[in-house]
Each structure stands twice: as C-alpha cells, then as structure tokens.
C-alpha cells in the first residue's frame, strides 16, 4: 500500500483543516484501505474520524430518526428503537457485506462507498471515466451482468452498490454535512449524482464537506417500509436487484403514500417515481400492481449481459408490493 501520513483530529474543525490541506477522510476503512491497496485511491494524508466526539448517537423521536455518521452499520441494524420505527433500515444493513465489515464500516462511509464495477477497481484497464476522466469506459461492450440499466450515460454504466442508500432514498432521508462555512442539510435525492458527462463527480458535496449524520422523517409509509434483496448467492453478495418499498393505504383501501427505490440496477440508488405515480390514489389490485411495476424499466438501457433485469425488476416490485398488501390486510 502506498505511503501516507495519519492524523486523528479531536474536532470537526481540525478534521476540516486536514481536509483543506489535501487530506482524505477515514471512517471504518473498509472502502478506503481496500481501494488504496488496489491503487485506485491514493491518499497522501489520512484523517481518521472514528474518534471524533458527538457523531456516534442514534435518536428516535416522535417525528424523526437522527443517526450520527460514525455509527457502525451493525449498531444501527441492532438498535431497538430504529428497528421498531424504520425496519427497512436494519433490513438493508443486515443484507449488506459481512458481520465483520458491518462492525467496522460507518454510516457516513457507507453513504460514500464507491462502485464495485470491475473495470473501475482494476487499474490495468486504462479506460475508466470515473477513475480517469476522459479515458473512456471499458465496461461498455465488456462483461456487463452487474452493470446498470438506469441512470447510465455514454460515459459510465457503473452500478451503485449500496443497500442502505436504497432504503434511505425510499425514506426521503436528509444528509447532514459540516464544513468550515457551517452545517448544511441536503436531500438524499440530491446527494447521489448520476454519471452524465462527469462520472468522476459522484456526490453533491463540496471539497470541504464532511458528512456528519442523517435524518429520516417518520411517515407512515416509511415506518412500514421493507427492504428485499435478490442475489446470485444467499449472502455476502451485492444485489442482482433490490427494492425498498413503503406503502400506506387510506381507510377505503386506496394507496395514500407509496415509495419505491431500486438497487443493483442503476448508477445511483433509484427512485421509481413512475411506478409510484401509477399506484398513488388507486386500489392496489393485482392488475394495477402489475401494470405499475411494468413501468419501472421503461427507460432502461440494457447492456449485452443484463437484459434479464428488465423482467427481474418488475417481478421483484410486484412480489414485494403484493406481499406488503397481503400482510397489511
């Protein structure tokens, strides 16, 4: 692994100063140290945030959940009040990575994880616009079984690998950041950037921003949301396709609120707004669900090896919504 210096700041101000002088933030290390050893990340100065005070709290009030950025994935997944208030969060976390990694990785770092695109992770491929802007995309025309069908561009088709992020997009979470200019809050819907012409720009963060936490509003559809992940093997695998779905019904059985987010098939955690719009205000009959689910991949642009997801995703949506309505009845 390349040489770097190490500092352990005692305050956000000190971390911010390190960041301003070219440092790289370190949380649990499961992303950064892996990529540094591959030569993809090249930190000169590592700023270890893990002992910063005040960013390791979970609070669930009557209206929202607040989660510090330094909370470990395993701790958030096991938190009793979180499990009761927002079960999809814990479900998405327990479907991620391995127990060891969940004990290490922070929630802030999890939000900032990089794609698992094999062409991004292997520096021997010269072409990767995400790694080396303007160099091209080796994935397009390559082996694309795990690549994205939604939110792609001619410059990048790398899939967003997250599970928690998919749940957060369904739950309308808010990301809190700190910079020397002060704290800031931005919607999770603005946080992840589709590649477009600038795949190297992955997050709507300015260079001095440090992610400090999350807020998740407690709405009925969010509180009943669930996370379902399909994988090529039973565990310890990225999603072939995943869904975070939330639903609430009116007294007369119509869809009051619906949230559908998809993982494993898009360049960013993907909100399926067309599916939601087709069901909102409607009675969720089997025919209505099937018709709505079919809209999810209407704008998909499949690659050579991932066409099966055109059918997989609508089937996952249909199955999940049908089960949720069955459980609610």
């Amino acid at each position: 692994m390349m040489d770097f210096s190490y500092m352990r700041p005692a305050s956000l101000e000190a971390a911010g100063a390190g960041l301003a002088s070219g440092g790289t933030l370190l949380g649990g290390g499961t992303g950064l140290l892996d990529l540094a050893r591959l030569g993809i990340a090249q930190p000169q100065a590592v700023i270890d945030l893990t002992r910063l005070p005040g960013l390791d709290r979970i609070e669930v009030t009557g209206t929202e959940a607040r989660i510090g950025a330094l909370i470990k994935m395993s701790r958030l997944a096991a938190h009793p009040a979180m499990r009761a208030a927002l079960p999809a969060v814990g479900q998405s976390l327990l479907a991620s990575a391995s127990p060891q990694i969940r004990n290490m990785a922070t929630i802030g770092g999890n939000l900032l994880q990089r794609t698992r695109c094999a062409y991004f992770r292997d520096a021997s491929f010269g072409s990767c616009n995400r790694r080396n802007p303007g160099s091209g995309c080796a994935a397009i025309g390559g082996v694309t079984r795990g690549h994205a069908l939604l939110g792609t561009s001619a410059h990048c088709i790398a899939t967003h690998p997250g599970d928690l992020a998919v749940a957060l997009v369904a739950l309308d979470a808010v990301v809190e950041t700190w910079s020397p200019d002060g704290p800031r809050a931005l919607s999770i819907h603005d946080f992840f950037l589709a590649p477009g012409a600038t795949p190297e720009k992955e997050f709507a963060l300015a260079s001095g921003d440090i992610v400090t936490g999350l807020r998740i509003p407690l709405a009925p559809a969010a509180q009943r949301a669930r996370y379902v992940k399909l994988r090529d093997r039973a565990s310890y695998e990225f999603a072939a396709a995943s869904i975070a779905a939330g639903l609430s019904l009116t007294d007369d059985g119509r869809v009051a609120d619906i949230r559908i987010a998809l993982g494993g098939v898009a360049t960013i955690p993907w909100r399926a707004r067309a599916v939601e719009a087709a069901l909102r205000g409607q009675r969720p009959t089997p025919a209505a669900i099937a018709a709505a689910a079919a809209l999810a991949m209407r704008e998909a642009e499949p690659q050579h090896d991932n066409r099966h997801k055109l059918a997989l995703v609508p089937a996952l949506i249909e199955r999940t919504l049908t089960e949720m309505i069955g459980d609610a009845a």
Binding site: L26, T30, L33, D34, V46, D48, P99, Q100, N103, M104
Partner: peptide
C-alpha cells in the same frame, strides 16, 4: 469481530 487487513 473485525478484519485486521482493513484496520490501520
């Protein structure tokens, strides 16, 4: 339990 290879 953690992974010693990804811990400084």
């Amino acid at each position: 339990r953690v992974l010693a290879c990804l811990t400084l």
